[in-house]
Write a protein that binds this DNA or RNA. Structure first.
Lengths: 179, 179
DNA sequence: GCATGTGTAAAATGATCGTTTTACACTCTC
DNA sequence: GAGAGTGTAAAACGATCATTTTACACATGC
């Protein structure tokens, strides 16, 4: 496995499990099996590593969430949590731990959330045949809610979000027919 | 103002704005205008301070969220964000930064989320005249979603959550009439 | 009038932080 | 076979971390 890939994926695990600030560079280099000199050659700084982790996670996330239905969307979330556990949105956590003051991290967060919103807008069009901002916003909120509520409610959160999304879609469909 | 109250409220602001781990004890004592000796006499440790902040925030939160309707619930959230800004759930953030390994913090988080769930179950009974676990779960998810999505979508997140909750309640009401 | 309690200021504790440096080994390629 | 590139190990950097200690000031109540 490529050295940079290994570094970023072990860093992602440690950051996710123990927090960003709480994870020191010694722990990172030791877990990745590389020297600190190599780490800094590759990512420049700890903030650079954090941003690289987030951008890689964003790619991975959108590879997984590639279906065209709400069932696929929340199914992907369920799979994600089953494999990696649920500890809240890593982008928001990074943003919060850095007080929103680190540009590369704030940008990675904003980019990720923009793409998520676009993904959901696409799903809405497939589900009800037309764009619907209010419905897309609701599904985004349910997705965000499930992501965080799953940390203390487990799989029930994802189930509940999927069911609520289905009901809202059903409502939007019949509303579209009657008007 | 009482010295302990002042300490906890300034600590809450600093933790919320800059993150828990990133906020050092020197900064805390300086901002609160007390010596480090006094701080440790009052809260024992940094983890103790974090737990005290969370428990005080929980009290304040439930004082604000005391209405009996979804409009009151999301109205309270709107007020909260307008006054203090939206940076995600401080309980989940504390839990995440400590890797879930600090007992007093994990307990404060669990207690807060339990109370929130009970609050919402009560609102559901008032709104539709009977308990409804699925509806309560959905509103909890919308609330959690709005709390976090407000960090990057602002007030639109709270609006969207309130509207979606209203639609789900309307659906549950007519369902109750037809069955 | 002397403990007791509660506060301050400031230094010291030892550990850990992110980052850089020094010195050295291996493998390519021209 | 010299030089460039990429890696390691390990020490050093100065700063900052959470916490404790020392020394002192000002109340309170018995």
């Amino acid at each position: 496995m490529d050295i940079r890939t290994r570094l970023i994926s072990t860093a992602e695990q440690l950051f996710d499990r123990h927090g960003f600030t709480a994870t020191g560079m010694d722990r990172l280099t030791q877990a990745a099996g590389i020297s600190s000199r190599t780490l800094y050659k590759h990512v420049g700084s700890k903030n650079g590593l954090m941003a690289a982790v987030l951008n890689e996670r964003d790619r991975r996330f959108h590879r997984l969430v590639s279906g065209d239905s709400v069932d696929a969307l929340f199914g992907a979330l369920e799979t994600w949590f089953a494999e990696e556990g649920a500890r809240g949105c890593l982008f928001l956590r990074a943003w919060g731990e850095t007080g929103g003051n680190v540009q590369e991290i704030a940008e990675a967060m904003a980019r990720h959330k923009d793409r998520l919103r676009q993904r959901i807008e696409g799903i809405v069009v497939v589900e009800i045949g037309r764009p619907d901002d209010e419905l897309a916003e609701a599904i985004l909120l349910l997705f965000e809610g499930a992501t965080h509520a799953a940390t203390y409610r487990g799989g029930a959160a994802v189930d509940g979000a999927r069911r609520a999304a289905r009901r809202l879609i059903e409502g939007a469909r019949t509303q579209g027919l009657s008007s």
